[in-house]
Every structure is written in structure tokens, then in C-alpha cells.
């Protein structure tokens, strides 16, 4: 696929939380880009920093969290320098965020229709007169049956899958160019998940969206992604086009994640990763994965590895693949381990 000029470029983003003992980074020196029509999947486990990355792009990180460093270039503007007023115009209208749990993202005391109409009117996309019909059209666009009836339903009257569709309809109301979906199908049953993923893919093709999909499920990654960024303990440890990643995962963490998925001969032991994700603020001084890594050697615990560039959009942070040493960006403050 020919690379277009990226719609979103994130450069050296570091976001963290100010606690009593200092600054605890949750996202460390993260860089990536997404172009129109392109799907970038960010995979990681809890605590990897994937959701904080999404919130940073929307500038929705609330104190004690703060963006410490980096640039977020969207459509030529650095989102970290625009005013809050300009940011409000961008949020929802140009960048939409779809959350994991549609029930918490929708307001329970207003109908689905009210909420879509409000979005349309706030962003000047419709008038009081035209909004109701537009809301119905949007529900139809996300394949909700009988949209003229559903528009009068409250969120609790819809099933989980329909709620997520309604939320997607709402986020597409202003025809955004970038959609950030944070675990959009994690709370759903597998058959409903399949429908929602299909819907996202279909809408992306029709509208030429840039899609930033955050997930922990490598199955979802394989189905949706053009490119993949694997996050671990706040850093992107591997980035690659989707086929290359699955054919030849280079980081031991990526290999461990793939080995952890049940598959292969039934009843055989899974190649699990030992140990657990280190808590924020208690990252080891070297590569954060080193304590769990079956392939660690001398340099790993000493300093975090820098990126080894393989070309073709592939990069990996691991001493197995190169000597690069990354300068410490934000030294993790010593915080008592719980």
C-alpha cells in the first residue's frame, strides 16, 4: 500500500501521573503515525499505556495526569499547542473516540436520538429541524434495524451490540477523519464482536477513515490491522506491518503474547510468559520486559534498548536485534511497590 502523508503523527509522547513522590510515566517516548484509510492497531495488556495514549491524543488526560513531552500533529496542527476551544472543535468533529463500555459512554437519561442530535447541533452539523432525520439516517448507516423506532429508545433498552452501534453512529455524526476505538468489542459477545468489527471495517472503507484501534486481542489485530504497534509497560516495543509481525515476531514479548493464545495441539502446555506486568512507577531500570524475558542477557537489565530499524515500517526495541541504547527520557520515580 502506498504511504500517504499521515493524518496523525505522534512524536516522542510521554504522559504520566504526578504523585507525591514525583512523576510516574505511563506512556514513555511513544511515536507512531496513521494515514487516511489506514488501520493502526495498538496491542498491549493492562498497564501497557495504550488507553493513556488514546486519551493523550484527545487531550483528555486529567490531573494528576499530564502530558510531559512530545508532539501530536493532526492535520498539520500540533494538538498540544492549540487552545482548549480549538481542541473542543476538533474533538468529536474531526477525531472521534469510541470507548469499550457503551453503557458508560451514553447518557442514560436521554434517548439515543437526543444524544446524536445534540452532537450534530453542537458541532453545527444540523439545525433543530434537520437533526432528527439525520439521527435516523446515522442509525441506519450503522445497520440498526428500524432506526425510526430505535431513535426514541433509551440506552438501557438496547442490547450491548446495538448500544455500541449507536455509539459508533454518534461518533461518526460529524464525519470525523480519525476514529480512535479503545477496546470497542471487549465487552461484547464474540458473534456481536464480529458484526461490530465488520461495521468498523466497512465504515472505514466508505468514509476513508484513519482508524486507531486499541485492543489486547491478537485475533482482532490480525483481522483489522494494516500495521501494528505492540506496547509494553508504556513503550512501543515493536512496530510492523501486520503480516510481517505475525510471520516473524521479533520482540520476545510479542512472541510470548502469541504463544499465550490457546491453539496448537489440544491439551499441550501454552508457552505462557512468566511473571506479571510491572506496576507503573516500579519499572526496572533496563528493558521493562527483562525480568520476564526468557532470552534476556547482559545488557538487558542495565538500560532500556533503543529502536532497531529494519526498514519497511519495522522497528523493535530489543538488544537481541541491535546495540542501540535509548537515553533515559523520564526517569521512573522510585515509588513503593505494592
Amino acid at each position: 500500500m502506498p504511504e500517504r502523508a499521515p493524518l496523525l503523527t505522534v512524536e516522542h509522547l510521554t504522559t504520566g501521573f504526578q504523585v507525591r513522590d514525583g512523576f510516574v510515566p505511563a506512556v514513555i517516548d511513544v511515536s507512531f503515525h496513521v494515514s487516511a484509510g489506514d488501520t493502526l492497531c495498538i496491542v498491549g495488556e493492562s498497564g501497557s499505556g495504550k488507553s493513556v495514549t488514546a486519551l493523550s491524543i484527545m487531550r483528555l488526560v486529567e490531573p494528576p495526569g499530564r502530558i510531559a513531552e512530545g508532539r501530536i500533529i493532526f492535520n498539520g496542527h500540533d494538538l498540544l499547542t492549540v487552545s482548549e476551544r480549538e481542541m473542543q472543535a476538533i474533538r468529536g468533529a474531526q477525531i472521534a473516540l469510541i470507548f469499550q463500555e457503551p453503557m458508560t459512554a451514553l447518557n442514560p437519561v436521554f434517548t439515543i436520538g437526543n444524544q446524536i442530535e445534540e452532537t450534530l447541533r453542537v458541532h453545527g452539523r444540523a439545525t433543530r429541524r434537520t437533526a432528527p432525520q439525520q439521527a435516523i439516517d446515522l442509525l441506519a448507516a450503522v445497520s440498526i434495524p428500524e432506526p425510526q423506532k430505535r431513535v426514541r429508545d433509551y440506552p438501557h433498552q438496547l442490547s450491548g451490540g446495538m448500544r455500541q452501534r449507536a455509539l459508533i453512529a454518534m461518533s461518526l455524526a460529524c464525519e470525523p477523519s480519525l476514529v480512535i476505538a479503545d477496546e470497542p468489542t471487549t465487552a461484547l459477545d464474540v458473534t456481536i464482536q464480529a458484526q461490530i468489527l465488520e461495521l468498523l471495517r466497512d465504515l472505514q472503507q466508505r468514509m476513508g477513515l484513519a482508524l486507531l484501534l486499541i485492543t489486547h486481542d491478537l485475533g482482532v489485530v490480525a483481522e483489522m490491522a494494516d500495521r501494528v504497534a505492540v506496547m509494553y509497560a508504556g513503550r512501543i516495543v515493536e512496530e510492523a506491518p501486520v503480516r510481517a509481525l505475525f510471520d516473524d515476531p521479533k520482540h520476545p514479548y510479542t512472541r510470548g503474547l502469541m504463544g499465550s493464545i490457546p491453539g496448537g495441539a489440544p491439551g499441550t502446555r501454552l508457552r505462557a510468559i512468566q511473571g506479571t506486568v510491572p506496576p507503573l512507577g516500579a519499572l526496572p531500570p533496563g528493558c521493562a520486559f527483562a525480568p520476564r524475558c526468557p532470552e534476556r542477557f547482559d545488557p538487558c537489565p542495565k538500560a532500556p534498548p533503543g529502536t532497531t530499524d529494519f526498514g519497511g515500517g519495522r522497528g523493535v526495541k530489543c538488544y537481541l536485534h541491535g546495540p542501540a541504547v535509548e537515553p533515559q527520557v523520564a526517569p521512573p520515580a522510585p515509588v513503593e511497590r505494592v
Binding site: T191, A194, D217, V242, R243, F246
Partner: peptide
């Protein structure tokens, strides 16, 4: 339908979704 809905962690496998 249930089996066809499981996302397969292999981008080389073509998807064949059966809708119930």
C-alpha cells in the same frame, strides 16, 4: 456461526463469517 466469529490470530487466513 459461533465458530466462524472467533477472530483468528493469523492475518493470512481468509475470513468466512457465517451469520446466524
Amino acid at each position: 456461526a459461533l465458530l466462524s466469529a472467533i477472530p483468528i490470530p493469523d492475518p493470512a487466513v481468509p475470513r468466512q463469517r457465517i451469520v446466524l
